[in-house]
Amino acid sequence: MSDAQFVQIVGAVYEHSPWVAERVVSQRPFASAEALRSAMRRAVQQAGEAQQIKLVRAHPELAGTAAARGEMTAASTSEQGGAGLNQLTPEELARLQSLNARYSEKFGFPFVMAVRGHDRQAIFAAMTQRLNNDRDTELRNSLEQIDRVVSFRLNDLISG
């Protein structure tokens, strides 16, 4: 495939951030999906804090306004739905919105979690616990969670 096709297809595993694929396209061919994921992870690590924060901010809040307006990517919609975030009770939604607001206010970016394989209670627990962290720790946690999301999405892309 062309460089542009690669960036369009593979770049989609990072939420609204094709720059990651753009930074690794010249390293093709990759020996495996893991080699590709590792190259993209290195690109994110080397990007610098401002670009990393922009990457984290490209992710929607869990069950946030983008979800309510139907503006999330298909992958995010599926992942959040799989975790039951599209079936919250009014009380759970209010709790999640409060946690989202507190988290965003404290850290300056949305809470990111690879929700695949987790239920609502595990997500609430993780959000509550992570609110106790400092900003540097949370930026690292968010990038680690993004890497997990990318791993799932890349595996889906390749196996699909």
Rank of each mutant, 00 (worst) to 15 (best):
G48C: 10
S142L: 02
V150E: 04
Q46D: 15
K54I: 03
E138M: 11
R95M: 11
G117T: 08
Q87I: 07
L93K: 04
F152Q: 09
S38D: 13
N133R: 09
P90F: 00
A67N: 05
L143N: 09
I123Y: 03
E49T: 15
R23C: 08
E49N: 11
A68S: 05
E105Q: 12
A58K: 01
V112W: 02
R37G: 09
A125P: 06
A101W: 03
F6L: 10
S2A: 07
Y103W: 01
R153I: 08
S32W: 04
D136M: 11
A114W: 01
G108K: 03
Q145L: 09
V20D: 02
N100K: 02
L93M: 06
P29K: 08
W19N: 12
E144G: 12
R148C: 09
Y14R: 07
L157K: 08
V115F: 02
Q80R: 10
T89E: 06
Q46Y: 01
R102D: 12
G108Q: 04
N86M: 10
M127P: 15
D136H: 10
F111V: 15
Q45T: 07
P60S: 04
T77C: 07
N86I: 06
Q129S: 15
A50S: 08
V25Q: 04
A75G: 01
E92Y: 03
P29D: 14
V115T: 09
P18A: 09
A114M: 05
P110Q: 04
S32G: 07
I9T: 12
A74V: 06
E22W: 00
L154S: 07
I53D: 02
R69A: 10
R130A: 15
Q46H: 06
E138T: 11
G82L: 11
L96G: 14
A43Y: 00
T77S: 13
R102T: 08
G117R: 04
V24N: 08
R102C: 03
R140Q: 15
A83Q: 10
R95K: 13
R102F: 00
L85G: 14
V149W: 00
L154H: 04
D134M: 08
Q121M: 12
V10Y: 01
L139R: 14
D134S: 13
Q87C: 12
A114V: 08
N141H: 05
L36A: 06
I9P: 04
F109N: 14
P90S: 00
R148K: 09
A114C: 14
Q8K: 04
S159M: 09
Q80P: 15
R41G: 08
A47P: 13
E22Y: 01
M72W: 02
S78F: 03
P60A: 05
V25C: 05
V112Y: 01
M40V: 03
E49R: 13
Q5F: 02
T137E: 15
F124E: 14
V115H: 06
M72E: 15
G82I: 09
N86R: 03
E138S: 10
G11I: 03
R116C: 09
R41Q: 10
G11W: 02
E79T: 10
K106D: 12
E49A: 14
G160H: 01
R153Q: 06
D156Y: 00
A12N: 05
A66E: 14
S142H: 03
S2Q: 06
A75Q: 08
T128R: 05
A68F: 00
L131H: 13
A83M: 14
F111W: 09
R42N: 12
Q8S: 08
